[in-house]
């Protein structure tokens, strides 16, 4: 298994001198789904944002397919193969569905752009029938689909997903998760933040538990799912 994303000793936060992440290391390999779980405020979103260059990194390193990302601005990461779907405000509400997709594919030459957008419409028919609707008027589930389709347009090798199932009905969640499984089967490495721990562990191959800005536990997803001490870990008690 080749390493696609490597994070080592990452210290990051919003204000200098106030680190939220206090030395996080992880690796992501081809085709694997790694679940990132932990209590509210543990720093899961911050970790994903720090990888995506949206939160300042104070120490440590992030590399994508062997390439050090120090100094690489967020807007170049897509072209390097890193896709990121934020937890909130992950589509442009005032742009139409089609405009959201075209903007995300803007770096591709004309024919490739059209083909890429068409491929996402084929994968998400709900979006195709709403192409001209402002994204702000989509339902929560459709909006998550659009955010996912947008990230997939650039054919990422690594996908960072911050709670893609938040606010979705159970039936929609299983559709989204089925899509993720298919995407991973295509060789994409996925780092998945989830509140629904049970579902996340069922989907993932491995899992990381983040507590207070540190990785408190890393294990095979199945092993963690079977561990009765997991709840204690979440509550901050020693495992």
């Amino acid at each position: 298994m080749s390493v696609l994303l490597a994070v080592s000793g990452l210290v990051a936060g919003y204000e200098p001198g106030l680190p939220i992440l206090r030395g996080v290391s992880l690796t992501l390999g081809e085709g694997g789904i790694v679940a990132l779980i932990g209590p509210n405020g543990a720093g899961k979103s911050t970790l994903i944002k720090a990888i995506a260059g949206q939160v300042p990194r104070f120490a440590g390193a992030v590399s994508l397919a062997g390439r050090d990302l120090a100094g690489t601005p967020t807007h170049r990461l897509g072209a390097l193969g890193l896709g990121y779907v934020p937890q909130v405000a992950n589509v442009f509400a005032r742009l139409t569905v089609a405009e959201n997709l075209v903007l995300a594919a803007a770096a591709l030459p004309g024919p490739a752009r059209r083909a890429a957008v068409a491929a996402q419409y084929a994968a998400f028919p709900d979006l195709a029938s709403r192409a001209r609707l402002p994204a702000g008027r989509l339902s929560g589930g459709q909006r998550q689909m659009l955010a996912l389709a947008r990230a997939l347009l650039a054919s990422p090798r690594v996908l960072l997903l911050d709670e893609p199932s938040a606010g979705l009905a159970p039936a929609v969640v299983s559709t989204v998760f089925a899509r993720l499984r298919a995407i991973a089967a295509g060789g994409v490495a996925i780092l998945l933040v989830e509140q629904n721990v049970g579902a996340a562990l069922a989907l993932a191959t491995r899992a990381l538990v983040l507590v207070g800005g540190r990785i408190a536990r890393e294990d095979a997803a199945a092993a963690l799912a079977a561990d009765p001490g997991l709840a204690d870990l979440f509550l901050g008690r020693a495992a």
């Binding site: 967020t74 807007h75 897509g78 442009f92 903007l103 803007a106 650039a154």
Partner: peptide, 24 residues
Amino acid sequence: SRLGLAMRASAENPALAAVYGVDA
């Protein structure tokens, strides 16, 4: 145009525009 799209996107949410690959 793509530039116009990028301008409207940046006006709505500059951080998300960067995620979409727009150079602010």
